[in-house]
Design a protein around this nucleic acid. Structure first.
Lengths: 139, 139
DNA sequence: CTATAGTTTAGAATGATTATAAGCTATTTT
DNA sequence: AAAATAGCTTATAATCATTCTAAACTATAG
């Protein structure tokens, strides 16, 4: 459990002003035991349910993008109509449940390190992401 | 080089009526030596430049989705504002050049087979995709 | 306390994709 | 080979996530 004061610190250290909205978003994202995955809509709902108070969509988008830039969140590549984010910023991979439209972490022990043997000159690898699509096991 | 007649066959066999538009799309997609990646916009441009004639966006979307369903195309997961498709339907992975917004095939020899050691009960693996993001190698 | 640079906000704008429904066309039926 | 029909194409409208705008607000430096 992190206190608001610590979030204020964290924001200031990152060069972000500690506003009410940002602190609320921090509380929702970074106060839970486990990391989790969410969409912007999920997050807006979580915040509004918690506080019984509206927060502007634009603020949520701005803040999430700021947090992503600072490395506090990761965006996950799925060709879905909504973008997913992960509060687990360590290097890891994912299952995507096509039925539940839900992400599930793959721990590093579950996937051997991926070695890319091809090199493209003048280009640097920024990330290596594995997405395992799963679905109901019918017939 | 595949002739129009063969595309007509292929479409009929798939339960798709061989219309002028579909045959044109087949020619653009399946007549080149090498497989390639494209967005819907790319494809519309290719077709219109080739024929000097408009094709409805809706037709292109419908056809591409029909082809994907039949397994003639693969959709590639990238969190980009546009969806990418691949005429290479074999199992393989990709680089995504963040600067050029361009996909590059990774051949199977360039990535060892990926073994997923975690199992989710009641769920079946549909696909395992690796996306390697690359970018200009500055500093 | 004041100035200012950074934030929040509602609402408008954007852009990819999907829906609509009217007219066209390939195929089937007669 | 004409008529029926089922499938297809089309322009346009609708949708929906995301980004933009610019006015009002607020944290903080001086």
């Amino acid at each position: 459990m992190t206190s608001s004061i610590e979030f204020v610190e964290k924001l200031r250290k990152s060069g972000l002003r500690p506003t009410k909205q940002r602190i609320e978003i921090c509380k929702v994202l970074f106060n839970s035991e486990k990391t989790f995955h969410f969409t912007i809509n999920d997050l807006v709902k979580m915040i509004e349910d918690k506080n019984n108070k509206k927060i502007s969509l634009a603020t949520v988008y701005n803040t999430i993008h700021a947090f992503e830039k600072k490395g506090y969140l990761k965006e996950i590549a799925i060709n879905s109509s909504q973008t997913y984010f992960d509060t687990n910023t360590s290097d890891h991979h994912h299952f995507f449940d096509e039925k539940e439209k839900e992400l599930i972490d793959l721990e590093n022990k579950d996937v051997d390190p991926i070695k890319i043997k091809k090199n493209i000159s003048g280009k640097k690898i920024r990330s290596v992401e594995v997405l395992v699509r799963i679905d109901t096991d019918n017939q």
